[in-house]
């Protein structure tokens, strides 16, 4: 049912001709992963081990995060890496970036996701999911846009999700797997700062050319398989006292 409301809402947005120029563009994000905070959530570590990690490494500069980009219009969006490879700040050393692409089609209510996790490459195709967003009373500025706060919860990864969405860009797109707010999500905070995906730049322009999907190969799964895989992996790893997070997208 929610989906229905959702599509109705989109139709409303689309209907507003006044916003046509505001409904497509590219958002460039910086994705920052705070491994100390993430590892501090490992239930099997003692307080002593967590403090030791924080004291030893907490003052290290983790460098700039990974550049990500969201290409969107009112019908569809692609979220993937902003650069073709990972590299050190000076570029002297590079690494392969794991496959990661999230495609949303709001019109056809379809999603395609392509990523490596758990030592395999997957291709997820399913219908659009919805999140139970709770709208909060805070506003702040992200990349020049006044954003409103919304929260939801990911029961699979057990994450508290905070999104800041820009009402001025009335498209329900967002970074990572998140979507469905009355404006583009310009900042995403997973679990109180474990991961922060924050918009650095918003360019509103025609993106018809950029919205083409590359060829993708992988083991075909559905949303329910994804949930199942992650649930099992996290439970198994915690039980075996291994860090489950480095082999999945947090």
């Amino acid at each position: 049912m929610k989906k229905t409301f959702f599509s109705l809402a989109i139709l409303c947005c689309v209907a507003l001709g006044a916003f046509a120029q505001q409904t497509e563009g590219i958002v460039t994000y910086e994705h920052k992963y705070n491994w100390i905070k993430v590892n501090s959530r490992l239930t099997y570590l003692s307080k002593e081990e967590k403090d030791r990690m924080q004291l030893t490494w907490g003052n290290e500069d983790n460098g700039p995060g990974t550049k990500m980009k969201l290409i969107f219009n009112d019908k569809q969006s692609i979220y993937t890496y902003g650069n073709e490879q990972g590299q050190t700040e000076d570029g002297r050393y590079s690494w392969r970036q794991e496959e990661y692409l999230v495609y949303r089609n709001f019109e056809k209510e379809k999603i395609i996701e392509h990523y490596e996790m758990l030592g395999k490459t997957f291709l997820l195709e399913d219908s659009l999911m919805s999140y139970n967003w709770r709208i909060q009373n805070q506003i702040k500025d992200v990349a020049g846009y006044v954003c409103m706060k919304a929260e939801t919860f990911d029961p699979i990864k057990n994450h508290k999700i905070t999104a800041w969405f820009a009402q001025d860009i009335p498209v329900p797109a967002g970074p990572e797997r998140y979507l469905g707010l009355p404006g583009v999500i310009l900042e995403l905070d997973i679990n109180d700062g474990d991961v922060i995906v924050s918009a650095q730049k918003v360019e509103l322009k025609n993106v018809d050319k950029d919205l083409t999907l590359p060829k993708m190969k992988g083991k075909k799964i559905k949303n329910s398989d994804y949930d199942q895989l992650l649930k099992k992996h996290i439970a198994d790893s915690i039980k075996a006292q291994r860090n489950p997070y480095w082999s999945i997208r947090y």
């Binding site: 929610k2 409303c12 507003l16 006044a18 967003w133 709770r134 709208i135 009335p170 009355p182």
Partner: peptide
């Protein structure tokens, strides 16, 4: 015009539906 109008569940502010003013 183009204000965001959101319909929320009162108990937890869950977003049920949203729209824009003309």
């Amino acid at each position: 015009g183009s204000a965001t109008v959101m319909l929320l569940q009162r108990k937890d502010s869950s977003l049920v539906n949203f729209s824009r003013t003309n």
